[in-house]
Write a protein that binds this DNA or RNA. Structure first.
Lengths: 208, 208, 208, 208
DNA sequence: GATGAATGAGTTTTCATTCAT
DNA sequence: AATGAATGAAAACTCATTCAT
């Protein structure tokens, strides 16, 4: 019986946490972090306010969890890319379309901007986002280095990494303001941009 | 003395409004729209809370004013660009560096993301931002068309316009998370990207 | 224990609402609707300000509840009167004394005038009071018709109904200004007045 | 020149006070005492807020002035009645129609109820209203005694005086709630009521 | 485990009143 | 005499959080 319990006990909590996170994400997307009240979240989660506090010590902790999940999501997507240089460049561009589509999903976009805006003002969330970003950047550094097939000056490499971040987060940002972009055309432009980022020889020298 | 007065009397209100807008922008950058209380703004403005309401009917009206000023700022920058196609392409790239520097100013960046996050949930602010965006897009459509020297499919042109928005707003977005980007390298990457956006023939056909 | 609970659980909210309404009525009588702050009401109710808002969505909703209760109170008093014409005329006059006593209770009087003053300017409360009044008037029309034993011109009947309203509400009004009226003498005058209202043949023709 | 001044100086202030009182009465009728702001009054009076304070030390002082004027108005109307008993009874009933019409003027009615409601809560205004009422009551006592042609027990007389107050103030009260009363029919009923008040022998004995 | 009643500090906004000009 | 800029205390209302049941 203890085994049955052990097998159920933990999932119970996991399920509850999921309910809460989904409900919260839903509210946050619609109203933003500050305009979503715990009462709204508990309504959406089908759970009492007080009960949420058994699973999360505060509203901010819910936000933090959502930020972490969002980062892990991206990381797992990046981990699916091949590691050998030959396929990588093609794979990166092939994936561009998927990336564009994901970044321009209204739900994804709304949450992205809400998270970044919160990171700008709330140091705790800011640290979390930066930490998550650093992990993604590390992956991107490896991918870009491999795709370009030669070592880059660190600052140059970092700038190219930023360009990757920038493009996909920028798409989400734009989606919030203008949801009617032609995704096909945008994907093509993103591919050309990736080409530019991966092909040009030296961003630092040329810049002078 | 009446003349001195006449020259100062009207500005009095203008000066007050400026004080308030500057104080508010300062608070908004640091804490966001919702975490900035009218009390904080009035402290920062060196003015009583009640007095702010002589100049703005609500907190939202202050936000709206700041949004409008931000848009006008960009529009006036775009208006400085030459209109003849010959210089335009070069000018656009020359201006890229200025644009990157502006977009990566921490103050500018923080306000940009705050405004967009607010636009995502507050319909009134959303409409204002979209309206301002539309004006900027119109300018950009003319500039890109002129620089490319030939007509583009409207959806294709719009996508290229979005790429311009996306890059500069994306830079602000990234600045909030990672303020230490090498601006020189980033400027060079942006120039290459602008080249890609202005040179490639047809984003819609290739995309198929 | 569940039964005990079931018997107490629902009343909990009812008890709370009562506490709030009683506290509010008390404040309203003493200071009026607008000079009674939610803080005062919550003090009087022995409850936090925020908690009141679990039971009433706004201060105006509290006022509306009190207005409704006041009207229901009068209606239930009228419903106790006999329906057959024979007893009615006597009953109306017998009840006059009770009516006078009720209308000249200082608490009742203060609330009555506060409600009417509010109805004069607040359209929502005005509608509520008129609606409640209409119900009472309907009752009074039936009672007067029955007591007079013959049909009256509608405008004539309505005027007599208004005289009933006027007398009892007027007593409350006067009580607020002059609480020391001799209730016995006043009751007698009211009885004579009711006689006048119920006996005279035709108010419209004579008026010409 | 001093004489000219003296003849103008005082009127200037008098005119200003009038402007303020008229504007205030207008606002008070529409929004009530508490919902009328000094800014609204000053707008209506075509005068700056600060300037009003040259003529009235506070908002309450304006209210007090209006209350006093209202009372004087009624007193001067009563003073017009004949003093000899023969005509008086007829005059009182003749005047009933005028009284009914005045009391049911919406403007008059709105102010009357606002004043009484304020008197119920604000001791200073309460005292003022009672004082004014006392003067009117004194007049009414004389008129009723004269009209009845014989001495009444003081409490009896006072009750009849109250009935007079009650009827006309009650009409104002009802007008606020139901402005569509048939004034002709109401006047007739009021005349019958006045008959009842002036004819019946002894309110105190009969009441036992 | 689960509820939701209860708190009170905090929010935006209004307004009578003062006072320098 | 006249203005209206300026104040700040108070209002209605919200909400994250706690805790008895």
């Amino acid at each position: 019986m203890d085994q049955v319990r052990a097998a159920e006990e933990k999932p119970r909590a996991v399920v509850r946490r999921r309910q809460i996170l989904d409900a919260a994400a839903c509210c946050f997307r619609r109203y933003g972090f500050h305009a979503s009240s715990m009462a709204q979240i508990s309504d959406e989660a089908g759970m009492s306010v007080g009960h949420i506090y058994r699973y999360f010590p505060s509203k901010e902790a819910i936000i933090a969890s959502i930020v972490r999940e969002d980062a892990n999501d991206i990381l797992s997507k990046l981990a699916e890319l091949p590691c050998d240089a030959a396929d990588l460049r093609a794979a990166l561009k092939d994936r561009a379309e998927l990336g564009v589509n994901r970044a321009s999903e209204p739900d994804q976009a709304a949450l992205m901007i809400e998270i970044r805006a919160e990171a700008a003002r709330n140091p705790a969330i800011g640290a979390l986002v930066r930490e998550a970003d650093a992990k993604i950047s590390e992956q991107l550094r490896a991918l870009i280095s491999a795709a370009m097939g030669r070592p880059l000056d660190p600052a140059d490499l970092d700038a190219r990494v930023e360009m990757f971040h920038l493009i996909f987060q920028g798409i989400s940002l734009r989606t919030v303001i203008n949801p009617d972009i032609d995704r096909k055309a945008l994907s093509q432009l993103v591919k050309w941009t990736i080409d530019a980022i991966l092909n040009e020889p030296n961003a630092l020298k040329s810049a002078i």
